[in-house]
Simulated assay, not measured.
Amino acid sequence: MTIDSDPTPGPLRAAVLLLRAEAVALGLVAVWLIWSDLTAPTTDLTSALLVTAFAVGGAVALWALGGALARRRAGARAPAIVLQLMLLPVGWFMIEGGMGWLGLPLIALGIGMVGLLVSGPTNRALGFGDPTP
């Protein structure tokens, strides 16, 4: 039996869990969109299918990035940060559209996730920072 002498730091573990939670939430939105595509009368099927494909792709990407970060793949951090930063304008437009109850938490989630992904313990776990002599 081996004991992992270098456990996953808390901020990285939290980021992985939140990425996976975002993937599940977006996956549920994708399921609802699929249901809507199949049952709702629509005037623009192409646009509906593209939005659905975007949601499915986003859920898959979030899940995959969470897995890659769990395996400490440094290359997964930048795309994860980009996806989190995309929450900022989405949240802002939700606030502008009268859905502040959803927009503010999305903005907070995006900022918090970026903080977790660039924190010192996450940097060290992913191999960023000063190399040891």
Rank of each mutant, 00 (worst) to 15 (best):
G10S: 08
G10M: 06
R13H: 13
R13A: 15
A15V: 06
V16I: 13
L18G: 00
L18N: 06
L19I: 10
L19S: 03
R20T: 15
R20N: 15
A23E: 07
A23K: 06
A23L: 05
A25K: 08
A25D: 10
A25V: 04
A25S: 12
G27E: 10
G27H: 11
G27D: 12
G27I: 06
V29P: 00
A30L: 14
W32L: 10
L33N: 11
L33D: 06
W35I: 07
S36N: 13
L38T: 13
L38Q: 14
A40N: 15
A40D: 14
A40I: 04
A40G: 04
T42W: 01
T43C: 01
D44I: 06
L45A: 15
L45E: 09
T46S: 13
T46D: 10
S47F: 15
A48F: 09
L49W: 09
L49N: 05
L50S: 08
L50K: 06
V51N: 09
T52Q: 06
T52E: 06
A53L: 13
F54M: 09
A55H: 09
A55R: 10
V56I: 10
A59W: 03
A59T: 02
A59P: 02
W63L: 05
A64E: 12
A64C: 11
A64Y: 15
L65P: 01
G67P: 01
A68R: 15
A68H: 12
L69A: 02
L69M: 09
L69D: 10
A70F: 07
R71M: 01
R73W: 13
A74I: 03
A76P: 04
A76E: 05
R77N: 00
R77C: 00
I81N: 02
V82F: 13
Q84M: 14
Q84L: 10
M86D: 02
M86K: 00
L87E: 04
L87N: 11
L87R: 15
L88Q: 07
V90Q: 11
V90C: 03
G91W: 14
G91M: 12
G91R: 11
F93S: 09
F93D: 02
M94F: 14
M94Y: 10
M94T: 03
G97D: 09
G97H: 08
G98E: 02
M99E: 10
M99N: 13
M99C: 00
G100Q: 10
G103M: 12
G103C: 08
G103V: 11
P105S: 09
L106C: 01
I107V: 12
L109H: 12
G110V: 05
I111R: 04
G112L: 13
G112T: 07
G112N: 04
G112M: 13
M113S: 05
M113D: 04
V114D: 03
V114H: 07
G115M: 05
G115N: 03
L117V: 01
V118Y: 12
V118S: 05
V118K: 12
S119E: 12
P121L: 04
T122I: 01
N123V: 07
G127V: 08
F128A: 10
